[in-house]
Write a protein that binds this DNA or RNA. Sequence first.
DNA 1: CCTTTACGTCAGTCACGTTGACTTATATGC
DNA 2: GCATATAAGTCAACGTGACTGACGTAAAGG
Lengths: 139, 139
Amino acid sequence: MELLFFAYRDFTTECDAILASYGFGRAHHRVVYFVGRNPDISVTALLEILRITKQSLSRVLGRLVREGFVTTRQDPADGRRRLLALTAKGRSLESRLSATQRARIAKAYRSAGGVAVEGYREVLMGIIDEADRRRFHRP
Amino acid sequence: MELLFFAYRDFTTECDAILASYGFGRAHHRVVYFVGRNPDISVTALLEILRITKQSLSRVLGRLVREGFVTTRQDPADGRRRLLALTAKGRSLESRLSATQRARIAKAYRSAGGVAVEGYREVLMGIIDEADRRRFHRP
DNA sequence: CCTTTACGTCAGTCACGTTGACTTATATGC
DNA sequence: GCATATAAGTCAACGTGACTGACGTAAAGG
């Protein structure tokens, strides 16, 4: 429990500094991250991932759209849906944020070795709710 | 990065429900947890673990003391220090909260096996800031 | 005795989550 | 074709838990 607490805390603090320079918070990071990972994701699908309310998301997402980090377009297949995607500016922010986290994980992976990483992923997967594990069984 | 996000989210959501029934939030949980783990910890030491400001802690800690979950007493060796400890009520809350998390981790450990757990701990340790790792080298 | 440390507190601010209610546009089933 | 359901956006009000800056008090220590 303590391991997870410290790991998650240290995992996020570097990003917080970058985000602060944009006037953003962690909520903006999460949106940029998951939109980057799931291009053309719908608003509802994003809400299900983040498990927050529409109102909470709209404040954060609205600003990201207004400031040109995220685009929305109507789904050609279902006009009610708005598909979200990152702009070049959004991708640039996303990779800047991810870079620090990736570096931290890469360093931990290198020093621990492949077998340890296997185990690490297996245990984390076990901690995650069954329903959410499907997300990781994609090609 | 996604693994950590989902694991940490699912790891905390069960506790949030219990905490809500007391009108508490995650901040209260963290205080109860670390005071439980470190009986007779001083306020400053707790602040260093949590990495929050004195003002933030004081609101949370003050309420826990007023409602009888935590006691403060003057350090006999240094009268400036207040030593924090859980009351029986506090220990009961702590173990109620920890039980759900322990169960989740135990389940993940069991299904992953000992080798995986070794790797898991090694990688998480690598993600944690060097300075904080010392915390885990206690007897 | 003076400085430092530990703790507490007042005042103001901000990010980010909540609930509830309502509107608009589009899909879809009968 | 109309009624219902779904997707999205929005208004209003609120709570928690962070933050900064400033100040006060008690105890320790050179």
